[in-house]
Every structure is written in C-alpha cells, then in structure tokens.
Amino acid sequence: MRVLIAGVGNLFLRDDAFGTEVVRRLAAGDLPPHVRAVDYGIRSTHLAYDLLDGWDVLVLVDALPDRGEPGALRTLEVHPEPNNVLPDAHGMDPGSVLAGLGSLGGRLPRTVVVGCQVADVSEGIGLSAPVAGAVDRAVTTVRDLLDALSVDAGTG
C-alpha cells in the first residue's frame, strides 16, 4: 500500500505552516519505503498532479480554521463527492484542487486529514505556542495512523 503524506500551508502566515512543519519532522525520521512525506506548502496543484501516480492513501496534514481550542488536533476521513470540475490554479486551497482531480484523469485515494486548530494566521513566520506544542503530537498521530494502515493492509 503506497501512502503519500502531504503537508500543506503557508510558511508566511504563522500557524498556517503547521502541516509543513509536521511533514518536515516526519521526513527527517525513518519512514517505511512505501511512504513518502512531502512539504507541498502552497503548491496544491503540484499535490494534485502527484496524486495521478496512483497512491492508495493520502494523509493530508494542515491547519484548521479557528473553530476550537488552539492546538487541538482533529483526525477525519474525507469522503468527497465525485467532481470533474477543472481545478483553478489560482484557487490554491487543497480542497478545491483535490475536488478537481477527476478532471485531470485521477481519483482521490482514501484521504485522512490530520489537522490542528490555529491560534494566529496573521502575516509572520513561526507557529504560535499552542500550535507549536501540537506538532510532536501530530507526528505521533500520523505514525500511529501509518501503523493502523499497515495492520489494515495485512503488512503490520
């Protein structure tokens, strides 16, 4: 089972860089050979084209809108509606780009989002204290998810 871990976010909007920091730490560690961790930053279109390579699972790591306690993690599985809308290269949010994956001839694989509630997405570099404190927990969450996927696939 091939797993793509994609960190997304804007390094220049403080907590929006959560996904990129988590993936940077994951990529610096030992990952199984069937797992690839990539910091896509704001290049969601690049992510869509990489998904055309036929991944079995996408783990998307991203900041979540301010709808809860800053630093709180949420893990959820995405069940997209079929959509053949052509992605807009100027509408770079991951949801919009991935929704148009069918128009590129691909399909969205099983997708799990590991997200963190933000505290500050103003201009600036560096995560807020609550979001920075969630990074190691998110790394553990993604590793646990990889273990569970291996067990589900019968390879663990």
Rank of each mutant, 00 (worst) to 15 (best):
M1L: 08
A6K: 13
G7E: 07
V8N: 03
G9R: 12
F12V: 14
F12C: 12
R14C: 14
F18W: 10
E21I: 08
V22R: 12
R25T: 01
L26I: 07
A28W: 09
G29W: 01
L31Y: 04
V38M: 06
A48E: 08
A48R: 09
D50I: 11
D50R: 14
D53M: 00
G54M: 01
W55M: 13
W55C: 07
D56A: 15
V57E: 05
L60S: 03
L64F: 03
P65T: 10
R67K: 09
G68I: 06
E69L: 14
G71P: 05
T75V: 15
P80Y: 10
P82R: 09
N84F: 13
V85F: 02
L86I: 05
G95S: 02
S96C: 00
G100K: 00
G100E: 01
L104S: 15
G106D: 08
V114G: 12
G115K: 04
C116W: 10
Q117D: 01
G124L: 00
G126Q: 04
L127K: 06
P130Q: 13
V131L: 02
A134I: 01
V135E: 12
V135N: 02
T140K: 12
L145F: 08
L145R: 03
A148Q: 05
S150Y: 02
V151F: 03
V151S: 06
A153I: 05
A153W: 02
T155D: 11
T155V: 15
